[in-house]
Design a protein around this nucleic acid. Structure first.
Lengths: 180, 180
DNA sequence: CAGTACGTTCAGTTTATTCTGTACGTACAT
DNA sequence: ATGTACGTACAGAATAAACTGAACGTACTG
């Protein structure tokens, strides 16, 4: 068997594994495959080249790349002389991981925090009502407790994401493992 | 307006927010809603009660609960006297977060690590071939480099998940925030 | 000013996922 | 044993997501 073929075959298998893994990040297989392909390509690619390489429509390449751009897994590259847009894969996966978390989680967290806070305030107002059945008051109180617990969690999560974003997480879990 | 209604309304809104957020964890809306509902219910529930409460089929409840069980977001509760299965929501969200990560990521990580390792070994074997075009050799070498970088990332991720699973992450990011 | 080479929007189609109702198996009760 | 109450497998229907090709807008080219 030809070595070039072997090489391609190994590459493809690895790309498939990467794509598969990227499901965990909330990314579809085909977008994952696109990323994997770009990662092993040693030069930025145009949409047409991607389309060619993956045998998919240009539309798909366009939307997939946009998706990857939003997640900062891919960046646009400028090259004079060509009118086509060029894209390359972000190579630092630690950074990719962090960006992904930051982008996807941050807004969700803050939405939850504000929703919980608002809800707690409303429940506290309800509790103040004079004419209130005892069982309703108890229910409101336990709800408030649960929401406070949730709030505490979201704030913890926020601090976790902070430590990702600032890179401080690497003080705690270093990129290089010295231990073994 | 009746206070009981208000209470229910607030609760529902919060549940909706939670469900929405759980998308980030790779869980569908309706499963998220089921979890949220269970979280605010102050007693374990049967499948029939859930079905009633959410207005969905019992089949859905059964499969959704199984899903939540797998993620350890819900646990089965025993109560003598009834033949029905009872389920309650895991209340500690920090723990839930950790379990989720551990369960969903661990296997993916190790699959990737082994896939990468195997691929690297194969490429190194290819490089050893005497009759090998120079450009193929170079390509193989850069691929190996990229795979090594990926490997380093996965090992980092594994150590991160370790710190979640062991609870050591809380030494670094404490559950209670003392700072502000 | 055409003319061409791009990327992207949009509507329709295909494919995958979620949801439901019926049917089934098991375990307990009588 | 017979009946009943439960959870779940399974197949089909409803819903959502991914993918495509044609049409469009923009920007560069001659």
């Amino acid at each position: 068997m030809d070595e070039k073929e072997q090489l391609d075959h190994v590459r493809e298998r690895v790309i498939e594994t990467i794509a598969n893994n990227m499901n965990l990040y909330g990314v579809t297989d085909s977008i994952g495959r696109l990323y994997g392909m770009l990662y092993f390509q040693n030069h930025p690619m145009t949409l047409d080249e991607m389309k060619e390489e993956l045998g998919m429509s240009k539309t798909s390449m366009s939307t997939s790349i946009r998706h990857l751009l939003e997640l900062k897994m891919v960046e646009k590259v400028w090259k004079k002389g060509t009118r086509k847009d060029l894209y390359k894969a972000e190579e630092d996966w630690h950074q990719t991981f962090i960006d992904l978390f930051t982008i996807k989680w941050r807004s969700g967290i803050s939405m939850n925090i504000s929703a919980m806070s608002r809800a707690i305030a409303e429940l506290e107002k309800i509790i103040e009502s004079e004419d209130l059945g005892e069982e309703v008051r108890t229910a409101a109180k336990t709800d408030i407790e649960k929401m406070n617990a949730a709030l505490q969690y979201y704030e913890w999560l926020n601090r976790l994401v902070d430590s990702f974003e600032s890179g401080k997480i690497f003080d705690f879990i270093p990129k290089e493992n010295n231990k073994e």
